[in-house]
Design a protein around this nucleic acid. Structure first.
Length: 399
RNA sequence: GGAGAAGUGGCAGAGCGGUUGAAUGCAUCGGUCUUGAAAACCGACGUACUCGAAAGGGUAUCGGGGGUUCGAAUCCCUCCUUCUCCGCCA
């Protein structure tokens, strides 16, 4: 989420950013609504603090009077404090109300796009940032899609997944399982070589963690929920990994923080069916390797470029034809300031498939996480980038 | 699952109803001293919100939430976590 003070001090910039995300004037009024509500909140806060100060003062006096044995005077003071109590309760209610409404408005506000983000409505308007210069691979007439190949070579078995669990839970076997494991190892090893610390996080998280990374409340329906213990299966390693830094204050010398993690990811994917989700294109459980960096705000875009190079290097080593897109305002994720998608060409499906995306979230994620760093005496929001690399969800088996 | 003990600032560790945002020690930062360092000494040292141009105030915070009280780190309820013992263990 954006910080209130940032919105107050950079109203124009925020409005400009929302326009890149295709907000109309009616939607833009949310900014002024927030500022007005915050003014209200401050007023209530001040009133409450004043009353509390008064009753704290009186209570102290009562203590002194009691010690001196002046019981009657103490009793009159006591009555006065009791009168103040009612006002306190009212104001507390108001303050609570205002804070809740403010928070829910702030949560509706997306991140402000980076200046380089092109305007646009949909994925069709994404900018090709780096094109594939060589010839695209072609397959012969009787080339098989990956789900046919899988059957032929016994690489994975979707029916068995259905039998054991349900649709969308692939079962890999033989060479398929081995390839999957090899890819995971490859990505992790490459990340380690590039200086990322490997993390093996829990695969279930509590509500506080899901809330801190924004899965709750908006994506509640997309997560598997173990209700008996009130835990959620992670939809991405981002959730447990970034929660390492929930409520943390870093020192400047802690930068850069570079983490990598492989986890299976669980998503209910409610409401997506059809031909485009055929095979492994969209499943409820898939494997993903994530790399995460937490950086000083001044260095975050430099770090983003490094991550871009890192991913490019991986695809080059795998000898896959790929391209990089810079997402336009309409396609940019809610929490991201700048996102590059990596797409690999599937010769069998004859289309580009997203395999990875690299984003800079600036302080949007860290604000919600309450992750800050200390510079001098002040604490600042720190920048947060991440890139994820899906295995199995992509077309590498078919390419 | 049952029985018991405990959770205080970066760490260690006092306090167990009133002037305690919290003694003391360590760590950290700034300074004096020193050729340099160490030692010694002096000073600073959480976070969030808020008032103020600033200086400087105010409010909250002693695992989380709720309650009793004029007043709670201290009393009560509840949840969480950790430790010890017993039970269970695909």
């Amino acid at each position: 989420m954006l910080q209130l003070n940032f919105i107050r001090e950079n109203r124009e910039q925020v409005l400009q950013g929302l326009k890149v995300r295709n907000y109309d004037t009616a939607a833009l009024s949310i900014i002024d609504e927030i500022i007005a509500l915050d003014n209200e909140r401050k007023k209530t806060q001040l009133g409450l603090d004043t009353i509390k100060n008064e009753s704290n003062q009186l209570s102290k006096e009562i203590g002194v009077l009691m010690k001196q044995g002046k019981k009657e005077e103490a009793d009159t003071q006591r009555a006065r404090v009791n009168d103040l109590k009612e006002d306190t309760k009212n104001l507390e209610g108001q303050l609570d109300q205002a804070e809740k409404s403010l928070e829910s408005l702030l949560l509706q506000l997306p991140n402000i796009p980076h200046i380089s983000v092109p305007k646009g409505k949909s994925e069709a308007d994404n900018e090709v940032f780096k094109a594939w210069s060589q010839q695209l691979p072609e397959l012969g007439e009787n080339a098989l899609p990956h789900w046919e190949l899988a059957k032929k070579y016994n690489l994975f078995d979707l029916e068995l997944g259905v039998k054991i669990t349900g649709s969308g839970f692939p079962l890999y076997r033989g060479k398929g399982a081995r390839l999957q494991r090899a890819l995971i190892n490859f990505f992790l090893d490459e990340a380690t070589n590039a200086g990322y610390e490997e993390i093996q996080p829990p695969h279930l998280v509590n509500e506080a963690s899901a809330r801190a990374t924004g899965q709750l409340p908006d994506k509640e329906g997309q997560m598997y929920h173990a209700t008996k213990d009130d835990l959620y299966l992670i939809p991405t390693a981002e959730v447990p990994v970034t929660n390492i830094y929930r409520d943390v204050i870093l020192e400047e010398r802690d930068f850069p923080i570079k983490l990598t993690a492989y986890t299976p990811c669980f998503r209910r994917e409610a409401g997506s069916y059809g031909a485009h989700v055929r095979g492994l294109n969209r499943v409820h459980q898939f494997d993903k390797i994530e790399i995460v960096r937490i950086e000083h705000p001044e260095k975050s875009y430099e770090a983003l470029n490094e991550m871009l190079d890192h991913v490019s290097g991986l695809l080059e080593k795998l000898e896959l034809p790929y391209r990089i897109l810079r997402l336009c305002g309409g396609d940019l994720g809610f929490t991201s300031a700048l996102t590059f998608d990596f797409e690999v060409f599937s010769a069998a499906q004859k289309r580009w498939l997203e395999v990875s995306s690299v984003s800079n979230f600036e302080t949007y994620q860290t604000n919600r996480l309450k992750l800050r760093f200390r510079e001098g005496k002040k604490c600042f929001g720190t920048h947060f980038e991440r890139k994820c690399f899906s295995v199995g969800k992509n077309c590498s088996l078919a390419a």
